[in-house]
Simulated scan of single mutants.
Amino acid sequence: MKFRSVFDIIGPVMVGPSSSHTAGAARIGLVARHLFQTEPERADIHLYGSFAKTYQGHGTDVALVGGILGFDTHDTRIPEAIKLAEERGIKVTFIEEEDEHDHPNTVKIRLGKGKEQMELMGISIGGGKVEVKELNGFKLRLSGNHPAILVVHNDRYGAIASVSALLAENEINIGHMEVSRKDKGKEALMVIEVDQNVDEELLAEIGTLASIEKVTKIHD
């Protein structure tokens, strides 16, 4: 087996006890926080499979909440995350689901603030690595381990090409890209994993392109 880095052998720097149940859970929570773009007032956390059975003993609960608070996997505040969320006025609810999913370490996070709401489905695949499988009803495959841009847009001719061209003009290399839509001609979502961080100026410029409704980013 060929390893790309020491990380692939020893796993992530993290607050234990488990790379899958703790570090992976914290990263899923952190991705949710990045995408929501602000601190939520409420967080409903639906746990499936192994997560539902062992989330308290393995620290999955505090890891998910820690990520939602903006803590990285190595943050020493993670064990106190639920208490800290309560102090910040965030209502956290855990729901143990009986439904089975393809992966045992599956969680659905629903964040809300006022009328704003976001729903994310993620899995922890081991070694602290994760995949986001669904976002607000859009099917996708987002690792959360690389810088990424998420672009909500109208399903119109040229929207994808214009975003790709602007990234190329700024010498941003695309490592992975996929597009999901709910229906032809309706709202669609571009997920673009890139090789380097994208600054706010370029992000704002993407937002001015025709047919683009919203742009967010995740930085590794």
Rank of each mutant, 00 (worst) to 15 (best):
E86M: 05
F36P: 07
V152N: 03
D61W: 00
V130A: 01
Y48L: 07
E169T: 13
D61E: 10
Y48H: 08
A188E: 09
V191G: 01
A26V: 09
G89E: 12
H101R: 13
G57E: 10
K184P: 11
T208Q: 10
P79E: 06
D220T: 01
V152F: 14
M121G: 00
A148Q: 05
D61G: 10
G112A: 10
H58C: 14
F7K: 06
R33Q: 10
S162Y: 00
S20D: 06
P17G: 09
G144N: 09
E200A: 12
F3H: 15
M14H: 02
G16W: 01
L167C: 06
T73P: 00
K83Y: 10
V15D: 01
G126T: 12
A168G: 09
D155F: 15
E213Q: 15
A63M: 01
E119D: 05
I95L: 08
G11Y: 06
L166E: 00
K182D: 02
M1A: 15
H74R: 10
E134T: 10
G137F: 11
L202Q: 02
I174Q: 02
A204C: 05
G158C: 12
N154V: 09
D183K: 15
N173R: 09
G11D: 05
E39R: 07
V31M: 09
I123T: 12
D220K: 10
N145T: 10
G144V: 07
K91G: 04
D102S: 12
G126M: 11
G66P: 14
F7P: 00
I10F: 02
H46P: 04
E39L: 11
P104C: 04
M14R: 07
A26C: 14
T106P: 01
D8W: 12
T73I: 02
A26M: 08
V163H: 03
I172R: 00
I109A: 03
V92Q: 15
H101Y: 06
A161L: 12
A161K: 11
R33L: 05
F71M: 12
N170H: 14
G127N: 14
I206Y: 01
F138M: 08
G158H: 10
F94V: 08
D195E: 11
K108E: 14
K133Y: 04
L142P: 15
M1D: 07
K217E: 01
V198L: 04
D72Q: 03
R33E: 07
I68F: 15
L142N: 13
K115W: 08
I9C: 05
K53L: 04
I10Q: 01
K83I: 12
D44L: 11
Y157Q: 13
E201V: 11
G11R: 03
G137Y: 06
E100C: 09
E178K: 08
A63G: 08
L203C: 13
T216D: 12
I45N: 05
A148S: 13
G185E: 12
H58V: 03
L150F: 06
E100G: 07
E86S: 12
D44H: 04
G29I: 00
N145D: 13
Q56W: 05
Y157D: 14
V31N: 08
I125K: 11
E178P: 01
A23Q: 03
G137A: 08
H74V: 00
A26D: 02
P104R: 06
